[in-house]
Design a protein around this nucleic acid. Sequence first.
DNA 1: TCGACACCTCATTAGGCACA
DNA 2: TGTGCCTAATGAGGTGTCGA
Length: 398
Amino acid sequence: MAAATLINPANAYHPHNTAFSSPHRHPPPPSMPGMIPPGESRRTPNETELAQRQSLPSISEVFSASKPTYSPTTPTTIPGAQSLHPPFSSAAAPRSEPGPDSRPAPTHDDGLFRYPRGDFISPRHPNSAHPFLEPRDLGKAPEHAQLNGSNPPPPPPPPPHMPYPQQGQLPPGQYPLSQASMSPRHLGHIPPYEQHRPTIHSDEDYGMHRNRYDPSTFNRHIEAWGYQDCLERISWSARTVYNFAEAYGKLASEQHSGHPIPERLPSEKEVTEMLSNVNFMKQSLENVRELVQHSIRTEKAREGGRHKGQYDGDDDVSMYGDGMKQSYGLGEVKKRRGRAAPPGRCHSCNRIDTPEWRRGPDGARTLCNACGLHYAKLERKRQMEQRSIRPKGVEERP
DNA sequence: TCGACACCTCATTAGGCACA
DNA sequence: TGTGCCTAATGAGGTGTCGA
């Protein structure tokens, strides 16, 4: 099915896809020595490049790290301006023109296992090479990245002036929130949250890539692009709202009183913008739905009556990748259970192939086998430490 | 010796189906 | 139509192997 092919993350996030490679070439943070490209096994022949290996922080690293601290959510970059024009003109809701490259990063306060959650959704985003970022790493220089000798990464672009986070705390490639988007009365108090829309691709961008596509498949490329772009925008909007809630939620939790302090509440404009984001998300989701429906209709028309009565898999298509379906004949496809589909890409190392998908901080089947095992180990150790810290009687709760 | 990871195993979940 | 059973599929921990 074309739709399945188009939306298959394994296709969209293929490690060799140039769109996936980081145009920014930001070096991985020092806590992640030896990043390896996505999909590359640790047993690749080029094992000499140990320094390039992408792995989770070691346990000792993790537990020697500073205790969980609030890591201000900072937008990262979106190289979106290199793509086609979105077919969903309606989705390109006119918003304040985002910065050249702005994109939010998730906030993980556990301090143990963090990664750019959204990068799964936005494969074009380069910062997916920075999984499990920890606050202690944010200001460090990317020393190890230069060990390779090739392509020394350029220094991250200077962030625009922002009241916070403190200078030098931003990881490479992440930009603080623009000051204009912040309520003036909050300056210096409110953790930033992303308020920039992802770049809406322009006609010029579209033109730049137009000649790449065969006219016969042009529409399909447009669809694929629009799908990704919509997801990207949905992802962005969701994170914006999330970050907004996180930021003000944290403030609220710090107030230690039941009554909100007016100075620490969001401005009405900010709330309105969040509402606008929600609408924006809704619009984009509707566009995605249209695309899916159209794709299904198209595919059914093409298939004709070939599989008439054999499989009506409208509900099943999007949940599992092609690989999962191959084991079934068309006539024996069963309704799949409503569980998490394989992400198609490890949320940590971006690997797309793994013998097994494992549970991660983002939920079931969000990590590859290796990362999942590592994460599980970290979690176990963390829980053990917590138990050892907690007084007896408090610990055991199912 | 230790860390990382592929593979194994088992408990859990949810869809399908028979039956009252 | 509701309920209970069966079973495929999944989730996740455990174990063995390999390499540093």
